[in-house]
Design a protein around this nucleic acid. Structure first.
Length: 600
DNA sequence: TTTATATGCGCC
DNA sequence: AAAAGGCGCATATAAA
């Protein structure tokens, strides 16, 4: 195992190691400079030798940036061997960004026909099990002659960034997106500590004792009986929207659906038990005992995050619903003995992002050192915090009616730059144009048929219906682009925040764990925590949960204060990375707790 | 019987 | 009064 990495050749240059998997399962490694030029002999390694190689260069400061097609494909196997990497470049995720970005619109990469790099990530199967090889990574060309090899793709990506309008921003975005992929794999591997006994207790208190699948628990059955009595329908199945709708009509209730928010407005003895039934029924079906059985393993919930799964750059999930974990059951998230959860939430993240995007000094000032909505109130813009909040949401989502629409003009007077930015993003969308986030992620083009509908409204023969349809469709897309720049830029801030947290957490305890000697691949030590604790996450603080603007770090109690400090500092760093010296605060609420329900 | 769509509600 | 921007998931129901 004598292959050492060459020294970096300059201050700003980076050493990349492109990792490809050959059809036989062997790994092909190319050491490249930041132009994609080989600077060492390629290596061909067995899977074990590959793990050994990675662990021999990590976590040294001389470790390269690993370049691979799909983090979710390669990284779980390394983690299963107790090996983490510091940095990577996820070709598939970066391809999507560069292909769509307005900043790289004229590059070869953006102009190329769709190929295999445009395929969505395939699903990952078992934890820590690498998937079957999907592509022959030895192949350098496809039938149409296009060279789609990983090396060629990587070079095209480097070239696209280098010739982009804002290469610095894109470099940061690609690094952050790739760090997100590492974090997602690590969080899934480590898992969120989950007490099934506490979960069961919460369920039993709400629903009654546990019953077999398909059987209505006691509390739900009682509510169903009350609903049947109040609607005078002994055979009613409250789980059937159709049946329920008819029964409500028969009882003289003028409803157009069975949605909760519509029922809430009505006065009738059935409403209270019905709303309660819906609430409990949701708990049972979404996060009941069946969910517990299939998603909690050895005291850990393993959320399956999908980085970049949403057009705006937000993450999605695939099974398990980690991004919709209801408040009702957060008490089951309990730190291990001797450990703590540090729960941090970015307060009013999106308005602060908007203030910074628009470089609006007044809005930035409203959020300085305080709750931003309170700051808007104390500036005399509106009377209450609720009004401030609903007005801001309206500005970012495009409300035109209701209370939110009424308050908007006052917001526009107080914060002209911020509101002008949201309006200009909306107008761009209405014209069918693309908008771009702070770091360079661009919105998709309107859906098929959109332009045709717009064109039809300008035809001399256009009817009123044509015009109304076109106007409504244009406004819909304008609301999307208006929100895109804020939500997408907030997602970028969150990625930078998490990447900083991860980096600093690693540094915090690195001294505790001596790096393996070069060429020696140490088997992971036996886990010291509960059965579900997995090395290397059984001894050091690590991220376990992410929810758009919120993170949870599971940490040995002795490190909790240091972790809280790292999280707070990382928020400032993320703000500077995106917005330089523009003076906007990114405030956090940070709580060190034993269980998630205690936070907030 | 299996597969696709609709509904309703959870999260930010 | 209505119910915004982004989603995922379970269940019921319709279609194949």
């Amino acid at each position: 195992m004598g292959a050492a990495l060459p020294e970096a050749t300059g201050q700003n240059s980076e050493v990349y190691v492109l990792v490809r998997q050959a059809s036989g399962g062997e790994f092909l490694l190319d050491t490249l400079d930041d132009a994609g030029t080989p600077i060492a002999e390629p290596l061909r390694l067995s899977p074990a030798a590959f793990s050994s190689f990675v662990s021999s260069v990590e976590p040294s400061s001389a470790a390269p940036r690993w370049v691979w097609e799909d983090t979710a494909h390669v990284y779980p196997a390394l983690l299963a061997g107790g090996i983490r990497v510091q940095r990577c470049h996820d070709l598939r995720l970066c391809h999507v960004i560069l292909k769509n970005s307005a900043l790289t619109a004229t590059t070869d990469l953006a102009l190329a026909a769709p190929g295999r790099w445009d395929l969505a990530s395939s699903t990952v199967n078992d934890l820590a099990e690498p998937r079957a090889t999907l592509f022959d990574f030895d192949a350098t060309s496809t039938d149409d002659g296009a060279d789609e090899s990983a090396l060629r793709e990587f070079r095209r990506q480097l070239e696209a960034v280098a010739s982009a309008a804002e290469p610095g921003r894109l470099r940061l975005l690609l690094a952050a997106e790739s760090a997100g992929a590492l974090i997602a794999a690590e969080m899934r591997y480590a898992g969120l500590p989950w007490r099934t006994d506490v979960h069961d207790l919460l369920l039993t208190r709400e629903l009654g004792t546990r019953v077999a699948p398909g059987v209505r628990p006691e509390q739900l059955e009682g509510l169903a009986q009350r609903i049947r009595f109040e609607l005078d329908d002994a055979a009613l199945n409250p789980d059937s929207p159709q049946d329920l709708f008819k029964a409500l009509q028969r009882a003289g209730l003028a409803v157009t659906s069975t949605r909760g928010w519509e029922l809430k407005k009505l006065q009738h003895p059935v409403i209270e038990p019905l709303l309660q039934y819906k609430k409990l029924s949701r708990l049972l079906s979404a996060n009941g005992w069946a969910w517990m059985e299939s998603w909690v393993v050895d005291g850990r919930f393993h959320p399956d995050y999908v980085p970049g799964g949403v057009v705006t750059g937000r993450w999605a999930t695939r099974g398990g619903g980690a991004l919709q974990l209801p408040r009702q059951i957060r008490g089951a998230v309990v730190a291990d003995d001797g450990w703590k959860l540090v729960v941090a939430d970015a307060a009013q993240l999106e308005p602060r992002i908007l203030a910074a995007l628009a470089q609006d000094p007044s809005m930035a000032r409203a959020g300085r050192g305080t709750d931003l909505y309170a700051g808007i109130v104390s500036s005399g813009v509106v009377e209450t915090r609720d009004h401030a909040k609903v007005a801001m949401l309206g500005a970012m989502y495009g409300a035109t009616t209701g209370e939110s629409g009424r308050l908007m003009p006052r917001l526009a007077r107080a914060y002209p730059l911020a509101i002008a930015l949201t309006e200009s993003a909306a107008r761009a969308g209405e014209r069918g144009e693309v908008v771009t986030t702070r770091l360079g992620r661009s919105s998709p083009t309107p859906p098929p048929g959109w332009h045709e509908t717009q064109a039809r409204a300008y035809d001399p023969a256009a009817t009123g219906t044509d015009e109304r349809r076109a106007r409504s469709q244009a406004r819909d897309w304008g609301r999307f682009t208006r929100n895109f720049i804020v939500q997408g830029s907030a997602a970028e801030w969150a990625l930078c925040w998490m990447a900083e947290i991860r980096r600093e957490l690693t540094a915090l305890t690195r001294a505790d764990v001596p790096p393996a000697a070069a060429g020696e691949y140490a088997a992971p030590a036996a886990a010291s925590g509960p059965p579900g604790a997995r090395a290397p996450f059984d001894s050091a603080p690590h991220l376990v949960f992410f929810l758009h603007d919120e993170v949870i770090v599971h940490t040995p109690a002795v490190h909790a204060d240091a972790v809280a400090h790292i999280i707070t500092t990382a928020a400032d760093t993320a703000g500077r990375l995106l917005f330089g010296d523009f003076p906007v605060d990114f405030m956090l609420t940070v709580a060190t707790v034993d269980n998630y329900a205690e936070a907030k």
